[in-house]
Amino acid sequence: MRSIQDTLYNWLTIKVVFEARPEDKSAKDTMELFEGILLEDHKLSNIIVTKEEPMYFVAYEKDGERHKVRFPIELIDVMLEQIQNEPDKYINYE
């Protein structure tokens, strides 16, 4: 099983892509996969994302305790930037 930190990173990265490309079924499916791991395997709840330069903050509850982690915006947004810079390589096949 992946660590909570790794799973949150992967989930947030693809969540940012999906929010920018809501028609992208692959992004949606991947986001839901990681979300399922967070909720079912890691037993997280009340996940809230905020963005304040230069970080994304992810707050969540686990075992009745509130936790907060942060990720640099540039690290999370790199996949979205790749897609936006080379859209012909990331065609949405429905």
Score class of each variant (00 low, 15 high):
Val69Cys: 03
Ala20Val: 03
Glu53Cys: 00
Glu86Tyr: 13
Lys68Asn: 12
Lys43Gln: 14
Thr30Cys: 07
Val78Trp: 11
Asp41Leu: 06
Ile91Met: 10
Leu38Pro: 00
Asn10Tyr: 14
Asp77Pro: 04
Ile76Pro: 01
Tyr60Leu: 02
Asn10Met: 14
Ala27Glu: 09
Leu75Met: 09
Glu74Asp: 12
Met31Val: 02
Asp6Ala: 09
Glu32Phe: 02
Val49Phe: 01
Phe34Glu: 12
Asp88Gly: 01
Ala27Gln: 07
Glu52Tyr: 04
Val17Thr: 05
Asp24Ala: 15
Tyr60Val: 02
Phe57Cys: 01
Pro87Asn: 10
Ile73Ala: 03
Ile76Asn: 05
Glu52Asp: 14
Ala20Cys: 04
Val16Cys: 02
Lys43Leu: 06
Asp6Gln: 14
Asp88Trp: 11
Asp24Glu: 13
Val69Pro: 03
Ala20Phe: 03
Glu35Trp: 13
Lys25Ser: 12
Glu65Pro: 04
Ala20Gly: 02
Glu32Ser: 06
Lys89Ser: 10
Ile83Tyr: 09
His42Gln: 07
Ile37Met: 09
Asn85Tyr: 06
Thr13Phe: 02
Leu38Asn: 00
Tyr9Ile: 01
Arg21Phe: 14
Ser45Glu: 14
Met79Leu: 15
Met55Gly: 01
Leu8Cys: 00
Phe18Arg: 07
Thr50Glu: 15
Lys68Ala: 06
Leu39Gln: 12
Gln5Ala: 04
Ile48Thr: 11
Asn92Tyr: 07
Ile91Asn: 06
Ser26Gly: 13
Ser26Ala: 10
Pro87Ser: 09
His67Asn: 09
Thr13Tyr: 04
Glu74Tyr: 11
Val78Gln: 13
Phe18Met: 03
Thr13Arg: 14
Ser45Tyr: 04
Val16Ser: 07
Lys68His: 01
Lys28His: 10
Glu35Lys: 14
Val17Met: 08
Glu32His: 07
Phe34Pro: 01
Ala59Glu: 15
Pro72Tyr: 12
Lys51Ala: 06
Pro72Ala: 08
Val78His: 11
Met1Cys: 03
